[in-house]
Measured scan of single mutants.
Amino acid sequence: MPSETPQAEVGPTGCPHRSGPHSAKGSLEKGSPEDKEAKEPLWIRPDAPSRCTWQLGRPASESPHHHTAPAKSPKILPDILKKIGDTPMVRINKIGKKFGLKCELLAKCEFFNAGGSVKDRISLRMIEDAERDGTLKPGDTIIEPTSGNTGIGLALAAAVRGYRCIIVMPEKMSSEKVDVLRALGAEIVRTPTNARFDSPESHVGVAWRLKNEIPNSHILDQYRNASNPLAHYDTTADEILQQCDGKLDMLVASVGTGGTITGIARKLKEKCPGCRIIGVDPEGSILAEPEELNQTEQTTYEVEGIGYDFIPTVLDRTVVDKWFKSNDEEAFTFARMLIAQEGLLCGGSAGSTVAVAVKAAQELQEGQRCVVILPDSVRNYMTKFLSDRWMLQKGFLKEEDLTEKKPWWWHLRVQELGLSAPLTVLPTITCGHTIEILREKGFDQAPVVDEAGVILGMVTLGNMLSSLLAGKVQPSDQVGKVIYKQFKQIRLTDTLGRLSHILEMDHFALVV
C-alpha cells in the first residue's frame, strides 16, 4: 500500500459497493488471473465517493441489488447463522422517566444476534452475496479491517462455511474481542490505534497488504460494500417497522461504517417519512454534520465500534436529520445504567446512543415513540467499562463513588512517597548505550525526554532486548525507535489509591 493515498477510480455505471474482489474501477472485475494482476490496485480507499443510485421515491424494481426479506425461524435451526436477525424490541421503562421523557422509549437489542452484535447481519450478508456472485469459493481466505464486531461476525460465518479468516484490528480494541476471535479460529493482526486510516500501518493498510500477498484472499470491505446497508434496509428496518406496527417518530443510532443508519433510515424514509433520524458520533470522530460539531482538541476516545477519521463510502449522511456528539463518560455511564436499571447487557456504544436519545427525544410528546439501536453486548468489555477499576483509572468514576473498604494508605498523596527525580535518556542515544546505562543503574525503564525536557515516551529494558533479539533494531539504532509513546501519567497530588489502580493494569506510571 502506498504512503500517498491515490484516488480510487470510478467506473461508468453500476453501484460502487459490489461485493467481491475490487477492480481499479471499484466494481467486480472478471477475466484471467493475468488481467486481474495487471488491473487490481494495491488498495482502494474506504472513503471513495459513493456511486449508489438510491433515491427517495425511486421504484424498488430499479435497484441493481439482490434483495432479501426477513424469514421466520424454524423450530430447529440448521446452523447458528440462522440465529442472525429477528432481534427483540424491548421497552426501556426507567431511564426515559428518569430523564423526563414523555414518549415511549424502545430498544432494538442487536446483541441477541448469534455473534453478539449488529455486525453479524452485514457479515453474513457480505459472505452470502460474495458466494452468490462467485467471488468467494471453498478454501478462500477472508481478510477484514475491523474494530472487532464485524470480525467476530465474519469469523463466526467463516467457521460454519469453512473459510480461512484473518482479522486486522487496532490495538485499542478489547482483549475479549481478541479472545472470541481466536476461539472462532480467526487469525488476528493488531495495528497502532493512532495510525491514520490511509497510513500503511493502519488496520485498513495492513489488511490490503495481506490481501496482495495471500492468494485467493478477499477483503469484503464493510466500508464500501453495498451488502452492509442492504442488510439493514432489507431486514433490520423491516423488523423495526413490523415490531412497531409502522408507528415510530424517531430513530437514534450510533454511527461507525454508517451501514446501520443508512440502511434503516432509507427504508424508514420510504415507509415512515415523518420519522426523524438521529445520528450519534463520538467526540474525536469526524462523521457528524455540520462540520463545526467535529471541532475539538480530542483525537482519541475509548468507546469502541463507532466514529472514524474518514467518511466511509457506505455512509449516506443525507438521510440523517440531526447529529449529536457523545463523550466517553456519558457513554459508559449510560451503558452501566442500562445494565443495572433495565437488565440490558449492552456495550458502550449503546450507552452513547441512549445518552443522546434522552436529549433528542425531549421534543417528542406522549403517545409518540423513539427507537434506539443497541449494537453489541457487554461480553466484549468485561475488563473495560464493566470494571470499576478501569473506570477509575480512566477518570470516568471517582473514588467516592465506590463504597468498598480501602487499605490505610489509600488516600495518601503520591508526594508522600518522597520520590527522587528519575533517570532520563535522550532519544538520540543508541539502544546499546541505553541498555548499558539501565543495567549500570539497576533500572528496568526510563523516560525519554528531548533537550527541552519534554517527555516523549518510555523505554524499557525488556522491550529493547526483545527488539534486538527479533532483529527489529540494532544496538547502533537510536533509542527513539523503541519508545512507548502511550503511558499513564500521575500527579504528586493524586492518591496512592489512584496509582494502585493504574499499576494493576500497566507496568509503570510516570509522575509529573
Results as ranks from 00 to 15, higher is better:
Val189Met: 11
Ile84Cys: 08
Lys83Arg: 13
Arg132Asp: 10
Asp245Trp: 03
Thr193Leu: 10
Gly134Cys: 07
His203Arg: 02
Ile167His: 07
Ala71Ser: 13
Asp120Arg: 02
Val180Leu: 10
Ile143Tyr: 06
Arg125Glu: 08
Arg45Asp: 10
Asn212Ser: 15
Leu184Arg: 01
Glu4Lys: 15
Asn194Lys: 12
Leu210Arg: 01
Val255Gln: 07
Thr191Asn: 04
Ala226Cys: 08
Lys108Glu: 06
Leu106Ser: 04
Cys15Ile: 12
Ser50Val: 09
Met89Ala: 03
Phe197Pro: 09
Pro64Lys: 07
Glu128Gly: 01
Ala8His: 10
Asn228Met: 03
Ala159Thr: 15
Glu239Ala: 07
Thr146Ser: 04
Thr5Leu: 04
Thr141Leu: 14
Ser254Lys: 09
Lys119Gly: 02
Leu106His: 08
Val252Asp: 09
Gln242Leu: 14
Ala69Cys: 12
Arg209Lys: 12
Lys82Ala: 10
Glu40Ala: 10
Leu268Gln: 01
Ser227Val: 01
Trp208Arg: 08
His17Pro: 13
Asn113Trp: 05
Ser174Glu: 03
Ile84Ser: 08
Gly153Met: 00
Pro12Ala: 11
Asp133Trp: 12
Lys271Asp: 03
Ser61Cys: 15
Gly205Asp: 10
Lys177Cys: 00
Lys137Val: 02
Pro41Ala: 12
Ser3Lys: 12
Cys15Lys: 12
Ser175Gly: 06
Thr193Asn: 13
Leu156Cys: 01
Lys97Asp: 15
Cys272Met: 11
Glu176Thr: 01
Arg161Tyr: 11
Pro170Gly: 01
Ala159Gly: 03
Trp43Val: 14
Pro88Val: 06
Gly31Trp: 15
Glu62Asn: 12
Glu110Ser: 04
Trp54Gln: 06
Ile261Cys: 14
Glu29Leu: 13
Leu124Met: 14
Ser32Phe: 08
Gly20Leu: 11
Ala130Gly: 13
Thr191Gln: 00
Leu101Tyr: 04
Ala158Pro: 02
Lys75Ser: 15
Phe99Pro: 02
Cys275Asp: 00
Leu28Gln: 10
Pro145Thr: 04
Pro6Ala: 09
Pro41Lys: 10
Pro170Cys: 00
Leu210Ala: 03
Ile142Met: 09
Gly256Arg: 00
His66Thr: 11
Arg121Tyr: 01
Val180Pro: 03
Ala48Val: 13
Ile152Gly: 01
Cys15Gln: 07
Thr235Ser: 15
Val168Cys: 07
Arg91Asn: 15
Ser254Asp: 01
Leu268Gly: 00
Thr146Asn: 05
Pro64Thr: 02
Leu136Arg: 00
Ser147Tyr: 00
Asp179Phe: 01
Tyr233Lys: 01
Ala71Thr: 15
Thr150Tyr: 02
Ile219His: 03
Leu77Glu: 02
Trp208Gln: 11
Tyr163Phe: 06
Phe111Ile: 04
Ile240Ala: 01
Ala231Cys: 11
His203Val: 01
His65Gln: 05
Arg190Leu: 05
Cys165Tyr: 01
Lys172Val: 01
Ala114Tyr: 04
Asp86His: 11
Asp79Gly: 11
Arg45Glu: 13
Cys165Met: 06
Pro74Asn: 11
Glu171Ser: 05
Ala157Met: 09
Ala24Gln: 13
Glu4Val: 11
Pro16Lys: 11
Asn212Phe: 09
Pro21Ala: 11
Glu4Met: 03
Pro200Ile: 08
Arg18Asp: 12
Pro49Asp: 09
Ala38Thr: 14
Gly11Ser: 13
Arg121Val: 01
Val178Asn: 02
Arg224His: 12
Lys98Cys: 05
Leu251Thr: 04
Leu241Phe: 11
Ile44His: 10
Val180Asn: 00
Leu230His: 05
Pro2Leu: 15
Ala158His: 02
Gln222Arg: 01
Pro21Met: 10
Thr146Gly: 05
Pro59Tyr: 04
Pro170Lys: 02
Asn228Phe: 01
Trp54Asp: 06
Lys36Leu: 14
Ile80Pro: 02
Lys247Gly: 07
Leu230Ile: 12
Ala24Cys: 12
Gly148Met: 00
Glu201Arg: 13
Cys103Ser: 06
Pro41His: 10
Gly263Asp: 00
Leu105Gln: 01
Ser199Leu: 07
Lys177Asp: 00
